[in-house]
Simulated scan of single mutants.
Amino acid sequence: MKIVKKKYQTGYSTRSLMIKEFDAILNSVNDLEEFFNGNEKVDINVIPVNSERSKNIVLTEVNKRVRSLANPVFWKLYRDGSSRDKTLILFYATCKAYQLIPDFVIDTVLPKWYNMDYELSSYDFKAFIYRISENHPEFGNFSDKNLNNISAATIKILREVGILKKNTLVKEDYNHQILNEIVSNGDSWFLEVLLLNESERQAIIGQ
């Protein structure tokens, strides 16, 4: 997967994978197809946050990630899946919506993994941002608070999906039905984001 020089979006910095929020919203949807087409609206009162402003922020963020993965099969798998399956699908959707996350994994996390350097922290993400900032002026006006927030959110997401346990990189075993659907969706690059080696990736791609 080639790192693309385009403006990165960082809207996920205020939210991680949002499992509870996705559960609440998708469980309230009667027809997923109609929801994707914009014909079924969500009652924001089902969203488990307090203020109306926060509910609207969550709904906007959920819509962004759902639209980035506008293939109903994944959301049907989500509603029927285990908590680990849900986490995997949400991580995939978040990577689709926010190129910064997979680019960080490909640029920084994978080299560490292949070199058997399994320690990862927010400092690695900050170093990645500093390294790419010359070609990405959107980070030029980042305050220390902004950088801390996006770094913490990225590390939290990797922990939620199981790639990171405390500060140690690990490789999880994921549902192959979902991985096969991801490959069929044209995103075999995502297997590398999950730290799968070439033979493991080829075994899934060849199924």
Rank of each mutant, 00 (worst) to 15 (best):
Asn63Trp: 00
Tyr130Ser: 11
Lys126Ala: 14
Arg15Ser: 03
Ala127Tyr: 12
Met18His: 00
Phe142Glu: 10
Trp113Ala: 12
Val105Cys: 05
Arg65Lys: 15
Ser54Gln: 04
Val170Gly: 06
Ile89Pro: 01
Tyr123Pro: 01
Glu34Tyr: 03
Pro137Val: 13
Gly162Ser: 09
Asn146Met: 06
Gly81Tyr: 00
Thr168Gln: 15
Thr14Asn: 14
Ile129Arg: 10
Ile47Cys: 10
Asp80Trp: 02
Ser199Arg: 13
Lys55Val: 05
Glu192Cys: 10
Asp31Asn: 14
Ser143Gln: 09
Ala97Asn: 10
Ile163Trp: 15
His136Asn: 15
Ser13Thr: 06
Asp43Met: 03
Lys96Ala: 06
Glu40Pro: 03
Glu21Ala: 01
Asp103Ser: 11
Val62Ser: 02
Val161Asn: 03
Leu164Ile: 06
Leu69Lys: 08
Phe74Leu: 00
Asn27Thr: 05
Lys2Trp: 07
Gln9Cys: 05
Ala127Pro: 06
Phe128Ile: 05
Leu194Cys: 11
Ile106Tyr: 12
Gly140Leu: 15
Val161Phe: 01
Lys41Asn: 13
Arg15Phe: 03
Ser54Val: 01
Phe74Val: 04
Leu90Ala: 07
Ala93Glu: 03
Ala127Ser: 12
Ile178Val: 04
Glu21Thr: 04
Ser68Trp: 02
Val62Gly: 01
Leu88Phe: 04
Tyr98Trp: 09
Gln202Pro: 01
Phe139Gln: 12
Val73Pro: 04
Glu119Cys: 06
Phe74Gln: 02
Glu52Ser: 11
Lys96Leu: 14
Thr87His: 06
Ile150Trp: 07
Ser82Arg: 05
Val49Ala: 12
Ile25Asn: 04
Lys7Met: 10
Met116Tyr: 13
Ile129Leu: 14
Asn50Asp: 01
Asn37Lys: 13
Tyr174Cys: 03
Val73Glu: 14
Asp187Arg: 09
Pro137Asn: 14
Ile47Val: 11
Ser54Cys: 02
Phe91Ser: 08
Met116Gln: 10
Thr154Gln: 08
Ser199Gly: 05
Ile163Phe: 14
Ile57Ser: 15
Leu196Thr: 06
Ala153Glu: 09
Leu120His: 14
Val161Arg: 00
Pro137Cys: 11
Ile150His: 11
Arg65Asn: 05
Asp80Ser: 14
Val49Ile: 09
Gly11Ala: 09
Tyr114Asn: 15
Ile47Phe: 05
Ser199Trp: 08
Tyr8Phe: 12
Gly206Tyr: 15
Ile157His: 13
Leu194Ile: 07
Ala152His: 10
Tyr118His: 03
Ile44Tyr: 14
Ala152Asp: 12
Thr87Ala: 12
Ile89Asp: 00
Ser28Thr: 13
Asp80Thr: 06
Ala153Lys: 06
Arg53Asp: 13
Gly11Leu: 09
Phe74Arg: 02
Asp117Pro: 00
Val73Phe: 02
Thr87Trp: 00
His136Ile: 07
Lys145Gly: 14
Pro102Leu: 05
Glu138Met: 15
Glu172Leu: 02
Ser121Leu: 07
Asn27Phe: 01
Thr108Val: 08
Glu61Trp: 07
Ser188Lys: 15
Lys76Ile: 11
Val49Lys: 08
Asn148Asp: 15
Lys41Ser: 14
Gly11Met: 10
Arg53Gly: 12
Ile106Phe: 08
Leu164Ala: 14
Ile25Tyr: 00
Asp85Phe: 08
Glu181Leu: 03
Leu17Lys: 09
Arg201Ser: 12
Val49Phe: 09
Ala70Met: 02
Gln207Ala: 08
Leu59Trp: 15
Phe36Arg: 12
Asn141Ser: 13
Pro72Asp: 06
Cys95Thr: 11
